[in-house]
C-alpha cells in the first residue's frame, strides 16, 4: 500500500474520532443544560410561592418583621443569583430563612391552623422534593460531562473547542437540615 493511502486512512480515522468525540461532548453538555432548566423551573416555582407565604404570615405575626425581612431578602438574592454555585448558596440561605418562618407557626397557633399557611407549606415541601430530584439528576450529568472533558483523549477536543467545566449545584436537603431554634424572648 502506498504511503499516501495510509496517511489518507489515518486522516479519515482521526477526523471521524474528532467528530464522534465532539458530538458526544455536545450531547453531554446539552444534557447538563437541560437538567439545569429543570432545576430553574422548580426554583422559580419556589420563589413564586414565597410572597403569598409572607403575606399570610404577616396577617398573624406582623411584628416578626425581622424574620419576614430575612425571607424577602433571601428570596431576592436567590432570584438574582447567576451560576449554580451562587444559586446554591442563595437557596441555602433562603431555606434557612424559611425554616425560621415556618417555626413561627409553633408560636402562633392561629397561623399554624390557617389553611392557606398549611397549603403553602405542603406546596413548598413538594417543590423542595422536586428540586432535590432535579439537583441529583443535574449533578449526575455534570459528573459525566466533567469526567469526559477531563479524560484523555477527549480532553484534547474539549480544550480545542472550549468545553469548560461545569459547577455542581449544592443545596441543603430540607429533610436533613437541623430543627431551627427560635427564641421569642424580649
Amino acid at each position: 500500500m502506498e504511503a499516501w493511502m495510509i496517511i489518507a486512512i489515518l486522516a479519515v480515522l482521526v477526523i471521524g474520532w474528532v467528530i464522534v468525540t465532539y458530538n458526544g461532548l455536545i450531547r453531554l453538555r446539552n444534557h447538563v443544560d437541560e437538567a439545569w432548566s429543570g432545576i430553574d423551573v422548580q426554583l422559580k416555582r419556589r420563589h413564586d410561592l414565597i410572597p403569598n407565604l409572607v403575606e399570610t404570615v404577616k396577617g398573624y405575626a406582623s411584628h416578626e418583621a425581622n424574620v419576614l425581612e430575612n425571607v424577602i431578602k433571601a428570596r431576592s438574592a436567590a432570584v438574582a443569583a447567576g451560576d449554580p454555585v451562587d444559586q446554591g448558596q442563595a437557596e441555602n440561605m433562603l431555606t434557612g430563612a424559611l425554616g425560621k418562618l415556618f417555626a413561627l407557626g409553633e408560636a402562633y397557633p392561629d397561623l399554624k391552623a390557617d389553611a392557606n399557611f398549611r397549603e403553602l407549606q405542603v406546596q413548598l415541601a413538594d417543590t423542595e422534593d422536586k428540586i432535590q430530584a432535579s439537583r441529583r439528576i443535574y449533578n449526575g450529568n455534570v459528573r459525566s460531562y466533567n469526567t469526559k472533558t477531563q479524560s484523555f483523549p477527549a480532553n484534547v477536543i474539549a480544550g480545542m473547542f472550549n468545553f469548560a467545566q461545569r459547577e455542581f449545584f449544592e443545596i441543603t436537603d430540607p429533610t436533613e437540615r437541623e430543627n431551627v431554634q427560635v427564641s421569642f424572648g424580649s
Binding site: L28, H31, E34, A35, G38, I137, G140, N141, S144, Y145
Partner: peptide, 8 residues
C-alpha cells in the same frame, strides 16, 4: 431523557 445516568 435529560439524565445521563438514566440513559446509561
Amino acid at each position: 431523557l435529560a439524565s445521563t445516568e438514566f440513559n446509561s
